[in-house]
Simulated assay, not measured.
Amino acid sequence: MSPALVVVDLAAARRFYGEVLGLEQGRSSDTWVDWNLYGHQFVTHLAPGRSQGVHNPVDGHDVPVPHFGLILAVPEFHKLAGRLRAAGTAFVIEPYLRFEGQTGEQWTMFLLDPAGNALEFKAFADDSQVFAP
């Protein structure tokens, strides 16, 4: 399965996903671009005129819904967080340690791409807790 997001401007998507996130671009057309997202095919599709704006409370933060999430290794998470900060990225939720000392403890951060798609990147110190109740 290839996850996909809708974008309203492919040039802005190329700058954000290619330059800010540092993803390698794959095949593309006038209406879509494939990306290498940590070894997974990720597709941005052009579809102007969409909207966002719903949130759910989680651990004292307003988490954007819907959002696309990716689990990284802890060092990769911190490397990406540093890259995003250096690029001047405005976070919806700044990188922080969620559920500290509890089941499911994880580093997490949320941001929006230029089309308003919410992205979550997270990292677990213990990957066995990814789906723990």
Rank of each mutant, 00 (worst) to 15 (best):
A87Q: 12
L119V: 15
G22H: 05
E94Y: 07
A13D: 05
G82M: 00
H67V: 04
V6Y: 13
L119C: 11
G69K: 10
D59I: 00
F77N: 01
G88I: 00
E94C: 03
P3C: 09
P75D: 08
N56Y: 08
V7R: 09
L72S: 05
T89I: 04
Y17P: 08
D30W: 09
V33D: 08
D113V: 08
Q52L: 13
H55L: 04
N36E: 13
H67N: 14
V63F: 09
L23A: 05
L119W: 15
Q41P: 12
V8F: 03
R50Q: 13
R14A: 08
Q25D: 06
A47L: 15
P48C: 02
P66G: 03
G22M: 02
F42D: 05
L37H: 06
T103C: 02
R50P: 03
V6D: 06
L72Q: 07
N36V: 09
E94K: 00
N117A: 10
F42A: 10
Q52V: 14
E76N: 04
G101D: 10
V8W: 00
E24P: 07
L23H: 03
Q102M: 15
N36Y: 10
S51T: 15
E105P: 02
P66M: 09
V92C: 01
R85C: 01
A13M: 06
F42L: 12
G104S: 11
R85Y: 04
L112T: 05
H78R: 02
L119G: 09
A123V: 04
S29M: 05
F42H: 08
L80V: 11
L70Y: 13
R98M: 14
G53L: 11
A4L: 14
R83L: 02
W107R: 06
